[in-house]
Design a binder for these strands. Sequence first.
DNA 1: TTGTAGGCGTTATCAA
DNA 2: TTGATAACGCCTACAA
Lengths: 341, 341
Amino acid sequence: MDHKRATIKDIASELKLSPSTVSKALRDHPNIGVVTKERVKKLAKQLHFVPNQSAIRFKQQKSFTLGILIPSMLDHFYVAAVEGFEKFAYDSGYNVLIGQSHESLLREKELLLTMQSNRVDGLIIAISRETVDTSHINECVQAGIPIVYFMRKPINEDFHCVCSDVYTGAIDAVAYFVSRGHKRIGFINASSFWTTSRDRFLGYRDGLVQHHIPFDKSLVQESDFTQESNLQAMRRLMQLESPPTAVLAFKDQVLLDAMCCLRREFPSKATTVELIGYGANPIIQYLEHPPLASLKEQPYEIGQKAGSLLLDLVNHPRTGYQPQLVKLPCELQVFNTHKQR
Amino acid sequence: MDHKRATIKDIASELKLSPSTVSKALRDHPNIGVVTKERVKKLAKQLHFVPNQSAIRFKQQKSFTLGILIPSMLDHFYVAAVEGFEKFAYDSGYNVLIGQSHESLLREKELLLTMQSNRVDGLIIAISRETVDTSHINECVQAGIPIVYFMRKPINEDFHCVCSDVYTGAIDAVAYFVSRGHKRIGFINASSFWTTSRDRFLGYRDGLVQHHIPFDKSLVQESDFTQESNLQAMRRLMQLESPPTAVLAFKDQVLLDAMCCLRREFPSKATTVELIGYGANPIIQYLEHPPLASLKEQPYEIGQKAGSLLLDLVNHPRTGYQPQLVKLPCELQVFNTHKQR
DNA sequence: TTGTAGGCGTTATCAA
DNA sequence: TTGATAACGCCTACAA
C-alpha cells in the first residue's frame, strides 16, 4: 500500500503542470481554465489528495485553531459549552484545542503555554478556582492572542465576557421561594473573585430587599465545589440557630450534595427544605424526589456566542476595543411543587 | 506592545549568532558552549520566545497530534476515556484532537477527513452506532495513520483494541442475580455489530448456562440508547407473559431509563425488579433508591492504554502486526441490597 | 564550537 | 491562462 501521501507537487508533475496552477485549480481560483480544473480535481481524488494543514498553517502564519480552557469536562455545563464553541469553530473552518485546568493554576499556566506554542488564533477561558493573579493570561494578550472570557471572569479585567444572567436568575429564584412562603433563604456561593459569584450574590441580596426580607450574612456560605466543601456549607447552614427553610445553590452539583446532606444528616427536614440550583442538570430527571427547581442556563449558546465574539477579534485585531459583557438569560425550571411546608 | 512574536532568527541576529546555533542552544545540544547557551536562553526568555509548533510540525512532517473519535462527550464514560488518553498524550509531548460523531456515520467520515488533513500521527476510535461499513477508517490506515479501537470495535477488524472485560462482567452480574434468587433474568443489549455487545451477550448466556438456567431469546432486547428506545426495551421485557425479575443493562444510561420505566409504568414491580448496569456512573450516588449494582469499568485506564498502544504504532510503523485485544477488568459495585423478592 | 545551505508543502506575487 | 520564484520558521547535514 502506498504510504506516501500525495502532495500538490505530485499532482503537478503527473499532469505536467506547475504546483501553483494545481494549487489554484484545487481552490477554484477564477483564472484557471475549466478543463485544467477538471483534470486536476480528478487526479486529486484518484490519489486521495488531502491538503496538508500543517503546511498551510505554516505558510499562512495562522493555526486556524481556537483554544478553549475550562475547569473540567466532568462538568456537564462545560461540556455543553465546548460543544457550542466547537460547532461554531468548525463551521468557520477552525479546529479546537481543549484544555482542562482541573481547577489548578499551575495546569492553567502550562496549558496557556501549549496554546501559545500551538499559535492558537484566539482563546476563550473560564478561569480555574485558583486563578487570582492573571498575569499569565495577560501575557497571551500581549503575544497577540485575543481572549474572551466566559462564565468565570476575573473581576477588573476588561475583555469580552459571555455568561449567564445569574443576577436575574437569583432574583427569580428568591421571588419563587418567597411566593412559596419562605423567609429564611440560604445561599451557597463560590469564589468571590469571579464576577459570576458577585452577580449571584447581588441578585440574591436584591431579591431579598425586594421582598423586604432582611439580609443575614450568616445565611451565605461559600464552597469550593468539592463534595466535602459542599456538604460542609450545607451543614453550616442547617446548624444555624435559625436555619434556612430554602437554599439557593451556586450550581446543581452543589445542590445535589446539599440534598445528600439533608437526607443523611437532617432527615427530619429533608422533605421540607426546598432547594434551587443553577444548571438544570439532566441528572435531575432521574431523581425520585427532585429539588424544587433549577435555573436553566444556555451553555451551548454561550459557547457559540463566545466563539463569535472571539472570531471577530481574530479577524479584526485591534487594541483598546470596547469590551462587551453578554448575558444570556436563565430560566427557572420547576421540578417539584409537591412539598408542603 | 510588541505584537510580532520572536523567532529564532530574531534571537540569532540580536546575538550575532547563526540561527542553527540558537536552535541547538535552545535544545541543549551538546556541542554548543555553555556561555552561548546561557546568552541565548536569557534573551529567549526576555523576548518571550515560544517555539512555533506550526513550523516544527511542518518541518518534521509530524503533527505531534493524536486524534480521538468518540460518540459523545455527554457520556461520562467517554469523557473519562478522553482524560486518560489526553494525560498520556500530553505526557508524551502530543496534543489531542477530539472528535464527536454524535452517533452519525456522516459526521464520523467528516471528522476522519479533518483528522487526515491535520495529519494526526495516530487515532483511537470508538465507532458510531451507524458505522457498519468501515471503508472510511481503512482509508486512514492506508494513508499511513495507525488506528487503535477502543470499547466499540467492529467485528472482523484486525487492529489493536482496548476495552472492558464485559464478558466476565456479565458472568459476574448473572451470578450475583442468581445468588439473590433470580431465575428470570432479562438483558438489554446494543448493536450486534460491536464486539462489546457480542461479548456481553456471550457472558450473559454463559452465565445462565453455568447456573443451569435455560436461555430464553425473548428476554434479550436491543436498544439504540435513545431514551425512547431504552424505555421501549424495558417495556417489552416487562410486558412478557413471564417478565424478568432482574435485568442486566448495556450501560447505566439504559439502566436509569429502565428504572424510570418501572416507576412510571410498572409501579408495583419498581421495588422488586433488580437491575445491574455497566459504568458505575457517579449519578447513582445521588439516587435515593439506587439500583442493585453496576459493573465499574476503567475508562481512564482504557484511554491511557489505547494511547500507549497507539504511540507504539506511531513510533514503530509496521504492517501486518499481530493485533492485540486488551481487556481491562470490570468490578461489580453493589449499591443496594435492601430489596427483597 | 559555530556557521551555511537546503528543504519540508503551500501560496502570493509577478512574469510570461 | 499558466508558470517561476520566493517565503513562512525550523532543523539536519555538513562545512568551516
